[in-house]
């Protein structure tokens, strides 16, 4: 019987590869855009006008305060009601990118706040403009603090991408769900699905740990 199941599983191999591909593509797109938008939001949260900063803060709180599953449902079901047509893939990308951007915004804000006040004052005193201060003095130093949790956030992103299976996107998790309907061995099927995620996530976790160690070992003033 187990042979039969293995055979059936082997037949699902192309489907599994498609699922893994979907997971990777979703995560990569959300990673790139989420990082760009997240940095933008974080910088504006600190350096933008009061109104802008408050609006960003409220939005980030809204996203951090609700389950990602609910956010996906909201985007997938409500945007069409507003006249914006979108398929599950686009909805998934929007939801994941937004989630990622909001968490990265918080990471960037914490990084910027970790830069000693004297650094900003020194830049101020030499007449650097607001964006020059940010670009030349604050951000490069903030990066030391930002990098480890940023990599950690990418792991969260990949894991969160599994939730888009709820709106029918055929990612790795959805493939497991489909296969388990035909091959009634949940332990084996989701073990294999888990291995798929582990292979992608674990190296990133190790990287985050190494970065963290390097940062705490190099406590104080160091060059990048």
């Amino acid at each position: 019987m187990i042979w039969q199941q293995l055979e059936s599983l082997a037949g699902s191999y192309p489907l599994a590869m498609r699922g893994l591909g979907m997971t990777v593509v979703l995560s990569l797109i959300a990673l790139v855009f989420g990082t760009l938008i997240g940095f933008g939001l974080g910088i504006l949260r600190i350096g933008g006008s009061r109104v802008l900063s408050t609006v960003i803060g409220a939005w980030v709180d809204l996203i951090r305060g609700t389950p990602f599953l609910v956010q996906i449902f909201l985007i997938f079901f409500i945007l069409p009601e507003l006249g914006i047509k979108l398929d599950a893939f686009t909805a998934g990308i929007i939801a994941l990118t937004n989630l990622n951007a909001c968490f990265i915004c918080e990471i960037v804000v914490a990084g910027i706040q970790s830069v000693p006040k004297g650094q900003v004052e020194a830049a101020l005193a030499s007449g650097l403009s607001k964006w020059q201060r940010m670009r030349q003095v604050v951000l490069p130093q903030a990066m030391r603090v930002v990098l480890p949790p940023l990599v950690g956030q990418y792991v969260l992103l990949i894991k969160d991408s599994s939730v888009v299976s709820a709106i029918g996107l055929t990612d790795l998790t959805r493939v497991g769900w489909l296969v388990v309907q035909r091959v009634p061995n949940g332990l084996l099927v989701f073990f294999l699905v888990g291995v798929g995620y582990f292979v992608v996530c674990y190296p990133l976790i190790l990287l985050a740990r190494r970065l963290e160690k390097r940062m705490s070992a190099a406590h104080g003033e160091v060059q990048l």
Partner: peptide, 22 residues
């Protein structure tokens, strides 16, 4: 490490579809 490197949803399905198997 295993828990942190895999999605909760997969863990949930693992138990949900897997426990009856046992």
């Amino acid at each position: 490490d295993v828990v942190r490197a895999t999605p909760l949803l997969v863990q949930l399905y693992f138990l949900y579809f897997g426990l009856p198997r046992l």
